[in-house]
Simulated assay, not measured.
Amino acid sequence: MNYENIIIDTEQHVSVITINRPQSLNALNAATIAEISNALDKLQSETSCRVIIITGAGEKSFIAGADIKEFADFNAEKAQQLARNGQNSLFNKIENLTKPVIAAINGFALGGGLELAMACHIRYASENAKLGLPEVTLGLIPGYGGTQRLPKLVGKGLANELIFSAKMISAERAQEIGLVNEVFPQEELLAKTKALAEQISKNSPMGIAKAIESVNLSDTDKGFEKEIISFGELFEMDDKKEGVAAFLEKRKPVF
């Protein structure tokens, strides 16, 4: 697939997907969603990639929401199909990918942009970032998982406040409420995100994959059992054997 809206760069087991629509503040249209989805499938199968970073081109916007022009005239059936297809092909895919996905939020993360960031496993932001879910100002609600993921990250009360008011919050406030992990100056954001990704990439890929599966079930009644089963399964995998051997031999493991 030839990409027109994204750029992919891989170095030292870390792949950076840059959404490259600066003229539209990197808004998500159907073509861009399809390209990101395709890129994730490709990177999932590549052994050279162990961690994925998603960011936006330029210094103004991570993703400034969905491209409203594409669905302005939809009826209920088409709108539901849009939301379902988007969640299944991209947002849920990010959350359930067995390789860690980190959002480097380099500016506006609004609507679908914030929903994409929330689907990522970790979120770093620049000091100039602004985050919000403005859908109710259009007579809508978040349709790409925002009403479900935001309460899990910040609690139901704060999620209601942000969704009902449609207000934007600063990166500093987002860190205070647990919506983003760390905040950095704009010029340091990508380097800091890559440093974390490179640290993660040195650890067991199988261990991380199993950890993602278990953490994703942490708010269900299946989480503890998944952790137990995964813990046992890893004992028969090469990564565990290498990790334990390296520990006993007082050397760094090579996964």
Rank of each mutant, 00 (worst) to 15 (best):
G132F: 06
K99E: 02
S165V: 03
E135F: 15
E249G: 13
G207F: 03
N88A: 11
K210I: 09
G157L: 10
A34N: 15
F74D: 13
I8V: 08
Q148N: 11
K222Q: 15
V180G: 07
I105H: 03
N85D: 13
V215W: 13
A76F: 09
V16M: 07
M118W: 03
A30V: 09
L190T: 03
L150C: 08
E176N: 12
A125D: 02
L25H: 07
I105M: 07
S45E: 15
I102C: 04
Q148W: 09
A66H: 08
A195L: 06
Q87C: 14
L248H: 13
A66R: 02
E161G: 01
I68W: 06
K240M: 14
D9K: 15
S165F: 05
D239A: 06
D41P: 03
L248R: 10
G143R: 01
P22I: 08
H121D: 00
A104R: 00
L153N: 04
E172F: 09
Q175W: 02
F247V: 01
I212R: 02
A104I: 05
K78M: 11
A117K: 02
A39T: 03
N26P: 09
K252L: 10
I8W: 02
I33V: 14
E161S: 08
A197Q: 01
K130M: 11
I36S: 05
L131K: 00
P253M: 07
E35F: 02
A117Q: 01
L110K: 00
D239P: 02
V101M: 07
G157Y: 10
K250F: 10
A174H: 04
I8L: 05
A191Q: 14
G112T: 02
E172Y: 12
E242D: 06
I94A: 05
Q80V: 12
E59G: 09
A103V: 05
K167Q: 11
G132P: 06
I212D: 02
T220P: 11
K42R: 10
S218I: 10
S37Q: 09
N26V: 00
L28D: 01
I68S: 08
G113I: 00
M168F: 06
E4I: 07
G146Y: 00
A72M: 11
L162G: 04
K241G: 04
L28Y: 01
S165P: 11
E187Q: 15
E236V: 13
E225M: 07
N38P: 05
V154T: 11
T193H: 02
K93Y: 04
I6R: 01
M237H: 14
D73R: 12
A166T: 06
A104M: 05
E135C: 07
C49F: 14
L40R: 00
G132R: 02
E198H: 08
K250C: 13
I7Y: 11
D219L: 15
P205W: 05
Q12H: 12
Y124Q: 00
R50Y: 03
L43C: 12
